[in-house]
Each structure stands twice: as C-alpha cells, then as structure tokens.
C-alpha cells in the first residue's frame, strides 16, 4: 500500500495520470482524497491560466505569411532561372562568335598558306632519292612505290591540325609542291586557287593530298603518277 507522501508526490508529478495504487489509496484515505480534490481544482485553474487567448487570426496570418514567402521564393526562383537562361544564351552567343571568327580556314586555304609560308623550299635543290624520301615519310605511315620525279625538298611539318609531308618536285617550268595530309579529310576533289599558286586537292584513304604549282602548270600527269605510287603503310 502506498504511503500518503508517495501519493502526494505522484499527484503533484503527473496529476492527470492516477495509477491504480493511487486510486486505491484515495479510497481509504479521506485526507489524501481531500488533498487530491484540492489539487484537481488547482490543475483546473492552472490549465485555464496557461490557455491564454491567442491573437485573433493567428492561423490566417501564418498562412498568409507562408503564401507570401512561397510566392516570393517562386519569383526569386523564376528570376534565377531567367538569369541562368540569359547567361547560357550569352555564353552560346559568345562561343558561336568566337568559333565563327576563329574558324580554321578550309583545307585548300591551309595548303596554300603553307606553301606561301614555306616558299623558300621552292628553291631547294637536294635531289632526294626514293629511299631517302620514304625514310622521311615513314613517321606519317606513307610511302611511294616508285619515283614521281626529281625531289628537291622533303620534310614533315605541321599542316592544319596534323603533321604532314611537304615535298617539292621539280616541274617542267617551275617547282610543284606536294602536301601529304594524313588525317585531314575532304569529301571530294577540289581546285586550289591562290594569288600566285594554283592546284588541286583530293581525298585519299588516309587523308588528303594537295598538289600546288605556279601559274597554269598542268598538274594532272603528276597527279596520276602520285596516285599510282602512293601507299599507306
């Protein structure tokens, strides 16, 4: 059986939860029963006091505040997306502009420019033999099966975005430049026209070949020879 002190302690600790033991004690102890009644009255008053009146429209103000915040947030998000979209558009415009203005020249222009820049090789007189020539072309995985004429210069250099072969052949009236450009592909044979140089550029299995001479030199016979002789290794 619980003692009075324990009952009082229990009633003051958790008044709404009267255990069976407490209830049994209250049945037989009139003093504790009276005490419990007083405490119940006190709890009632306490509960009433704690339940202060909340400001009118509190819930609606909270909901309004939340709606405003959500709306604000949506606007900010929308603005942020507009900002991102504008940045992307600007970036694309700039990138396209840069790409457009820095667009590399077409392969025929590259070939012409290369001949012009290295025109000092046009006067070379090295008379390179076929074996030596193939040795020079070996890194490009290209070889010539037979002689295509007198070779005054042969070397490898950067042409466009790949390393290629630069060969100067003795023509009937003027030197002719043969550019072997592995990895540089064009869809079909094209004419090359510059201020002082003219030529042709045509596709082969491993890339393209340009044959450029001065003035109106007929390049077709040499072109046929090259086609017959050129092999990929």
């Amino acid at each position: 059986m619980m003692r009075c002190l324990e009952v009082h302690h229990s009633l003051n600790t958790e008044p709404s939860k009267k255990t069976e033991e407490v209830l049994n004690h209250l049945k037989i102890c009139p003093e504790c029963k009276r005490y419990a009644r007083q405490l119940d009255q006190f709890e009632h008053n306490l509960s009433n006091q704690l339940r202060i009146v909340a400001p009118e429209g509190l819930a609606y103000r909270i909901l309004l505040n939340q709606n405003l915040k959500t709306h604000q947030h949506n606007q900010q998000t929308r603005r942020r997306w507009y900002g991102i979209a504008a940045s992307i558009a600007l970036t694309l415009t700039l990138v396209s502009g840069v790409l457009y203005f820095n667009q590399p020249d077409s392969l025929d222009q590259i070939a012409l420019l290369h001949v012009k820049n290295e025109q000092h090789h046009l006067t070379d007189k090295n008379n390179i033999q076929l074996t030596a020539l193939n040795h020079i072309l070996n890194p490009l995985r290209i070889k010539l099966d037979q002689s295509i004429g007198t070779i005054n210069y042969a070397g490898t250099c950067q042409i466009g975005s790949h390393r290629g072969g630069h060969i100067v052949i003795q023509g009937e009236t003027a030197p002719i430049t043969l550019l072997l450009m592995p990895g540089e592909h064009i869809p079909h044979k094209e004419k090359v026209k510059g201020e002082n140089y003219k030529g042709i550029i045509f596709p082969v299995e491993t890339g393209s070949i340009a044959l450029i001479g001065e003035g109106d030199t007929d390049l077709e016979p040499l072109l046929n020879k090259i086609k017959m002789s050129l092999r990929a290794i």
């Binding site: 339940r51 909340a54 509190l58 819930a59 909270i62 909901l63």
Partner: peptide, 11 residues
C-alpha cells in the same frame, strides 16, 4: 498543421 497547432504553440 497551422489550424491544429498554432494556438498551442503560441501559448
């Protein structure tokens, strides 16, 4: 939630 608990939370 607002309707159910705002008053209790306020108190």
């Amino acid at each position: 939630l607002v309707h159910a608990y705002s008053v209790d939370l306020y108190r």
